[in-house]
Design a protein around this nucleic acid. Structure first.
Lengths: 138, 138
DNA sequence: ATGCGTTGTGTAACAGTATAACATGTGCGA
DNA sequence: TCGCACATGTTATACTGTTACACAACGCAT
């Protein structure tokens, strides 16, 4: 975690630290988990983390998992599915995978349009059991 | 708000109060907003609200909006689309409508199954601008 | 009716998540 | 140099949710 490797153009120091923390993590991290992990790097206050996260979210480098109050680095290099990803959250191992949404965004958009709703972004989070855990538990 | 009318079989006192508060509200309410609204009815602590909400969520009478940390009463009498509703959240007027999901749950389930993920519930929350606000502002 | 488990309730304290307000620093163009 | 935009640092506070413990009400088997 000390060898920094920004996979992106021009992140600031704090943004880079936060992004690297998320990239290196096995699963989603809460803002305060990030904070704890970065105390040795000069990050001392929640706001430092939240500000970095805001920018990273804007850039599409990071996604927010609303149902977990936590964050993950986007796997897709230069992801621009901002606000359209589908996350599968395993309730056993807590791991999260980002599914290929396919046409889903479009379908939702037209479904919403039928009700006169002009969709800008979608939060889609599935809960269930991943293949690993299904095997393990029986 | 003082004339109580449980629209459901056998809610306890607190559950009824919380359900009525949500039913009567124009939009989603946070747990603490519910708490504030019910102080005159003997509700004094967050836990009283959260416990009632837990039961109401189980019964499918109430839905949780993850991206707003708040709750709405389900419009469908005896809704059993538990964990499968589609919510459209207007970012201008903050109002929320529950869309008819159609086959969406099934599609998500099979999409997830392709990745070996056994889906149990889905959170789907759209952000955008409702028809009223689009007219008003544009 | 007594005993006992289950469920709902009441209260206080606390843990976790997020933002407001204010001050400082740094780079860059007019 | 001045002023602006942006990133940063710090403190305090607000909002959201849970733990732990105690008590009350009900059903039900004995």
């Amino acid at each position: 975690m000390s060898t920094v490797a920004h996979s992106s153009p021009e992140l600031t120091r704090n943004q880079g630290l936060v992004y690297d923390a998320l990239s290196g993590a096995k699963g989603p991290l809460s803002a305060y988990a990030i904070l704890d992990g970065l105390r040795d790097h000069g990050i001392r206050a929640p706001l430092q983390v939240y500000r970095a996260l805001d920018k990273l979210l804007e850039m599409g480098l990071v996604h927010r998992l609303e149902s977990l109050n936590s964050f993950v680095a986007c796997k897709h290099p230069n992801c621009h599915t901002r606000g359209n990803s589908v996350f599968a959250i395993c309730t056993k191992c807590e791991r999260v995978s980002e599914l290929a949404g396919g046409d889903l965004g479009g379908r939702l958009e037209s479904m919403a349009a039928e009700d006169g709703f002009d969709m800008v972004a979608a939060t889609i989070e599935l809960r269930g059991v991943c293949s690993d855990c299904r095997v393990t538990s029986g």
